[in-house]
């Protein structure tokens, strides 16, 4: 995914572009990937400044302009023409009224992994946290868990950070299957499942934060506890009616985290598998 593939950088003229730009710069120069900038706005001067910054380390940069209205369409078009490894954007989870935020739309509609940048700390020598749903039985979810763990492991290796995992367990539910009736039992089960998964993928983690959910509460808590600089999480990317009714957890978390978030969609395994060494 990351190697030899282009990066897509979305910069919004109205926001502070430095975070996303810096991150993109770091990633592009480390991986020697080409970058396509999609600039939201019409200030050519600033855009070209940004382009210049990126080109300093010999990174090939391509600049396009867009507006908020046309952004999604344009991005979709770009993604269908060329294959991009990663979309980088600064995190902007603001919602206008009851509508989905721009970030939400991006997460739902675009097929590539998305990195939403919030923090300015280097990932180098930091902590990467993979958020997985250890108690699922759904095959797609299980595959997604594997993808998340693999990608997080890869990034940890490249940035020489510590790999950690976080699992949000559902809270106790009276009357359910006996195991689900007690917090301790649920968490014990989650730990087991997680250990099994890690051993199957032949990964070792430095720490695991297994706690009582719901997800929107525990993952940010865990990220704080583990001092993660990057959280890798999967999303079901529900769109349409389902998306309107119950939404996506990944989108909900965006506003509660204060580090960078890398979101993987369901079904990206063919991108990730070739990377396993």
């Amino acid at each position: 995914m990351l190697l030899n593939k282009r990066l897509l950088l979305v910069l919004d003229q109205q926001d502070d572009i430095s975070l996303a730009l810096e991150r993109c710069h770091l990633i592009a120069s480390r991986l020697q990937s080409a970058v396509t900038i999609v600039w939201l706005g019409d200030d050519q001067v600033k855009a070209e400044q940004a382009m210049a910054e990126l080109m300093t380390d010999g990174v090939a940069v391509d600049l396009r302009y867009s507006t908020r209205h046309k952004l999604l369409k344009q991005l979709a078009g770009l993604l269908s023409q060329q294959s991009f490894g990663l979309l980088i954007k600064s995190c902007d989870p603001r919602e206008s009224g009851f509508m989905t935020s721009m970030d939400g739309h991006i997460l739902r509609d675009l097929p590539c992994p998305v990195l939403l940048v919030k923090g300015d700390q280097l990932w180098q020598d930091g902590v990467v946290m993979a958020a997985v749903n250890a108690l699922t039985h759904d095959p797609h979810q299980l595959q997604l868990n594997d993808d998340v763990l693999m990608v997080a492991a890869q990034i940890a290796v490249v940035t020489e950070s510590a790999l950690t995992t976080a699992v949000a367990c559902p809270s106790a539910m009276m009357g359910a299957d006996p195991v689900l009736q007690s917090e301790n039992l649920i968490q014990a089960k989650a730990q087991e499942a997680l250990a099994a998964q890690l051993s199957r993928l032949a990964l070792t983690v430095q720490a695991s934060a297994v706690g009582e959910g719901p997800v929107e509460y525990w993952i940010p808590e865990a990220a704080k506890q583990l001092k993660a600089r990057l959280v890798v999480i999967g999303t079901r990317a529900r769109g349409g009616l389902k998306g309107a009714l119950i939404g996506n957890t990944a989108e909900r978390i965006l506003s509660r985290l204060d580090c960078d978030i890398l979101v993987l969609r369901v079904g990206l395994s063919d991108e990730v598998v070739p990377l396993i060494k």
């Binding site: 559902p170 809270s171 106790a172 539910m173 009276m174 009357g175 359910a176 009582e212 719901p214 509460y217």
Partner: peptide
């Protein structure tokens, strides 16, 4: 928010039954 959500989940089955 958290308390309400956890309580909802905890009592869902007995309440509904």
């Amino acid at each position: 928010w958290l308390a309400a959500r956890r309580a909802f989940r905890a009592l869902y089955i007995p309440g509904l039954t």
